[in-house]
Amino acid sequence: MNNRRSRFLSIMLISGLTFLYVPMILLVIYSFNYSKLVPVWGGWSTRWYYVLFESQDVWDAVSLSLKIALINATFATILGTLAGLAMVRFGRFRGRTLFGGMLVAPLVMPEVITGLSLLVFFISFKQLIGWPAERGFTTITIAHITFSLAYVTVIIQARLTGMGQSLEEAAADLGAKPFKVLTAITLPRLAPGMVSGWLLAFTLSLDDLVIASFVTGPGANTLPILIFSRIRLGLRPDINALATIIILFVAVCVAIAALIMFRQQRREEMDQQIAAREG
């Protein structure tokens, strides 16, 4: 019985890992494929990496995506933090329920609807006030900030609720004015939440295809738009090379994050040991 269960568990584990990692491994392997046809193996080669480095459109798309992602993450974090503070720390104010609902709407709204509504918004504004004159970088950034803001707000709200108010009350009690409380206590305590919010907003923006496709204009291709349009024309191995570089980049980021978390955990354990020795 026990044996059978453990075998069931190992089968589940292996198939889980297989579905997660084998596609990625295959992608990496095929990026070194000499053949021009993706499914046909033609021997080892790095030629697609050279092709990739020479294709200007790919690098334009990468730089546009990164620019949008950076600006988006920064603005979404600032606005999301402010929105979270308003929701959790400002008590009841007029329109609070409506505000809260609007904040989380992008989380539950299908992306196509968000994209479409933003497109309609940009078009009608262009007719009304002549802005935005052209769709592209600006409109995609605004659209991304709109929906990543919701995710950041949720993270900040959760963190603020979990933190409780007593530290801020203690600071006020010791004579700190509200702005000082915010900068000396609330924001340092929120920092981990803001970092996760920033990273999430960055990833969401880098990842987004649907909303960007709606609000983009001629010539402004983000990386997902570029890859997707290329794939419609048939798979090309230089995309595999690009994907491999992205996977490598993400893996390095994850490893660094894990290392930081491990260090922090160690430090907490050591603090606890010190405290226990004292007690």
Partner: peptide, 19 residues
């Protein structure tokens, strides 16, 4: 407001600033 009162408080769970 609290920050202008001649009072100070010791909180239930001490509310020490962890950072």
């Amino acid at each position: 407001p609290p920050y202008e009162r001649p009072t100070n408080m010791m909180f239930q769970n001490y509310a020490l600033f962890p950072h």
